[in-house]
Write a protein that binds this DNA or RNA. Structure first.
Lengths: 207, 207
DNA sequence: AAGTAATTTAATAGTGCTATTAATTTAGTA
DNA sequence: TACTAAATTAATAGCACTATTAAATTACTT
């Protein structure tokens, strides 16, 4: 609490709430618990954020934006050849997930709880990937024409890419328990899968 | 309710509860809501299942067993060559998921809520896949030795397989909203990804 | 048809949660 | 130092939920 008091209460509440929402989801987290964890009065949570719903949305939107902005930022890769660019995208996407391992589950659950949020999200999402998508697709078609890559849809490629990357973090709690892994082994697996996903995808794309 | 009354109340409660737990998770589902949906008194839910926790566990264990028994039953495939066997496993696994599309999210959430359940699960799981794993691994090593498949771990192959299959159903609610898909398009995508996952994996395994 | 067990309901105790209000404390300013 | 705004707390209204109990109803058996 001393540590927390050095920061502003508002931020402390935000951070604690973020952790609790990520770990236990919206329904299983109460403002009472958040306050207890922070070490402040429960009314204070409502003083700053008015409602639990609102507190959640502040966190959700912020995390969500951060996540998608970074995860699908292809950067300045114009000088790279297609497979290297793809490798970069896979690895960057993987690393973002690695820094936000619980976020996918939160997103999945929140969108199940409030389906209309998906539509809001859709509009926000449209801009970012459409540009990347168009450009990547042209390059992919060219690679295919020139026989350097087998015939494949970009959409399918992206679904596979995201699937491979995201699943590891979704299933990590299960994997580490079932296989009785310690921290070192966990880190090793993550590092290993990062490379494996790249290899798996690139090998699959060979003509 | 008339329809429900023809069955036993107990089963009606079980089925309704199953749907609600699958759709909204444990915390966001109440025995009051279940009873309202079934059309019976709320106390009846507790009469048959004593506690909400217990009701959930009954459903969870039943679903879980059913799921894993089927999903990793390689059947009598001894006469098939490795890639055909693999194809069969991918497709069977996919089909089980297709019939239980919401189950993965339920499992992920439940295991986050009660981490010790993973350990219980681990012991139950051990038997089923270990046999399959050993056998498959031998065959895979043989294929690699004989140059028909590139060098790859069975564990990595299985993680990729499960990732590709499961993710589609986890993300389906998002995909269909973002891409504005109707029922027909949804079915098409599922059918398409079923084949695509097989192709993606098999192409990747080429030496 | 009477008696017994199983099923179902009504009522409610007890708990924890969200949100609000008014009072109190703290910090900042003139 | 006195005044004002911001931050924090205490108290509580009001609600929904879980679980239990006792009463009522239905089904079953002899």
């Amino acid at each position: 609490m001393d540590i927390k008091n050095e920061l502003s209460m508002e931020k402390a509440i935000l951070e604690t709430a973020e952790n609790m929402f990520l770990n236990k989801g919206f329904a299983a987290t109460s403002t009472t618990q958040i306050a207890k964890e922070v070490g402040c009065n429960q009314a204070l949570v409502h003083y700053y954020f008015r409602t639990k719903e609102n507190l959640f949305n502040v966190i959700f939107e912020q995390k969500f934006k951060l996540f998608f902005q970074n995860a699908f930022d292809a950067g300045n890769l114009d000088n790279l050849k297609f497979t290297d660019k793809l490798k970069y995208i896979i690895e960057t996407h993987f690393d973002i997930l690695s820094n936000n391992p619980r976020l996918p589950v939160l997103i999945i659950n929140e969108l199940a709880r409030q389906p209309h949020q998906i539509e809001i999200l859709r509009d926000k999402l449209r801009m970012i990937p459409e540009l990347l998508f168009k450009k990547l697709n042209e390059e992919l078609r060219l690679e295919i024409e020139q026989g350097r890559i087998r015939d494949v849809n970009l959409m399918d490629l992206l679904i596979s890419l995201i699937s491979l990357n995201v699943s590891l973090f979704i299933f990590m709690p299960i994997i580490e328990t079932v296989l009785l892994m310690d921290e070192t082994q966990k880190e090793f697996l993550i590092k290993h899968r990062r490379a494996e996903n790249v290899e798996f995808i690139l090998k699959s794309l060979r003509p």
